[in-house]
Simulated assay, not measured.
Amino acid sequence: MPKTDYLNDPRAPKANSLVVAVTVFVQDDVGRVLLIRRSDNRLWALPGGAQDLGESTAQAARREVEEETGLHVELTGVSGIYSDPGHVIAYDDGEVRQELAICLRARPIGGALRTSDESSEVKWVEPETIEELPIHPSMLLRIRHGLKDDTPYLG
């Protein structure tokens, strides 16, 4: 389902749903960041997605990382909480969502990198090269906060 992200864009459609979502900032032992190239918009992003009914935020985070990357992770903390009403995501089915996104920190503990229906590429990226990739500003903000490794962002 193709999507378009809008950030503080006066031409953005009005949100018609609020969705709880997770993103996961995964770093390996040498400091590289796990990124996926999303199949729906071709942009690079942290793994993540909507939390399903009947699962906890932690379960959703581990599930999304495994589904999109093939890796198993151990969650280690909270990087930030993102709820900016100026960031909306429009889907081709008419849904326009505002997300309450919780970004968790994690480290890999198993599995093997692979793509999925949601990720056309998966790779470890050196922090100094991240900004060279096509990444939506809302996702880049989460990555920058993850790289700071300090007090969780609340916004």
Rank of each mutant, 00 (worst) to 15 (best):
P152C: 03
D149L: 14
T151N: 09
V78S: 12
E132C: 08
P47V: 07
E74Y: 01
K123V: 10
T76N: 05
A106E: 14
V26S: 04
P137H: 04
E95Q: 14
T115G: 13
T57L: 15
D52W: 12
E132Y: 06
R62H: 07
L46M: 14
G77V: 03
V65C: 02
E55I: 03
R105M: 12
T129G: 04
E132M: 11
A50T: 02
Y91Q: 10
I130H: 08
P134W: 08
V30D: 13
T76L: 03
L140F: 02
D92C: 04
Y82G: 04
Q59P: 05
A90M: 10
L147T: 03
A50F: 01
R32K: 13
E74K: 11
V26R: 01
N41R: 01
E128D: 15
I143K: 03
A106W: 09
T115M: 03
D92I: 12
E68P: 01
L43A: 13
I102E: 08
R11N: 15
I143R: 00
W44H: 03
W124F: 04
V22Y: 01
P10K: 08
R38V: 06
S120F: 08
K123M: 15
A106N: 02
A112Q: 15
P152V: 00
G111Y: 04
P85F: 06
M139F: 14
D9A: 07
L7T: 12
V78H: 07
V20Q: 00
R107W: 08
E121N: 10
P10I: 13
V22P: 01
L140T: 03
D28W: 01
D29L: 13
P134S: 07
H87I: 03
V88D: 00
L141F: 14
E118R: 11
A106Q: 11
A106F: 03
G86K: 09
V125L: 11
S116W: 07
R32N: 14
K123E: 12
R97F: 00
P134I: 07
L71C: 05
G54Y: 08
A21W: 00
T57R: 06
L140W: 06
L113I: 09
T76Q: 05
M139L: 11
G110S: 02
A101E: 15
I130G: 02
R105S: 15
D52N: 09
K14Y: 10
R11A: 15
D92T: 15
G48H: 00
V30A: 12
L140N: 08
N41W: 06
L154S: 14
S116D: 05
H145W: 12
G111N: 06
R32A: 11
A15I: 00
N16M: 09
M139A: 12
A12L: 07
Q27R: 14
A45G: 09
A50S: 02
D28P: 02
D52F: 12
T57N: 08
H72Q: 13
E132K: 12
T151W: 08
P127V: 02
N8P: 02
E68L: 01
M139R: 12
V122I: 07
C103P: 03
L75A: 02
G48W: 04
A61Y: 00
P137A: 11
T57H: 10
A101R: 15
V88H: 04
I135L: 02
L18R: 11
Q27Y: 00
P47R: 10
L140M: 14
T151R: 14
V65H: 05
D5R: 13
W44C: 09
T23P: 01
D149W: 10
K14Q: 13
G77L: 06
E74T: 08
P108S: 09
I143P: 04
E55N: 04
S120W: 07
L43M: 15
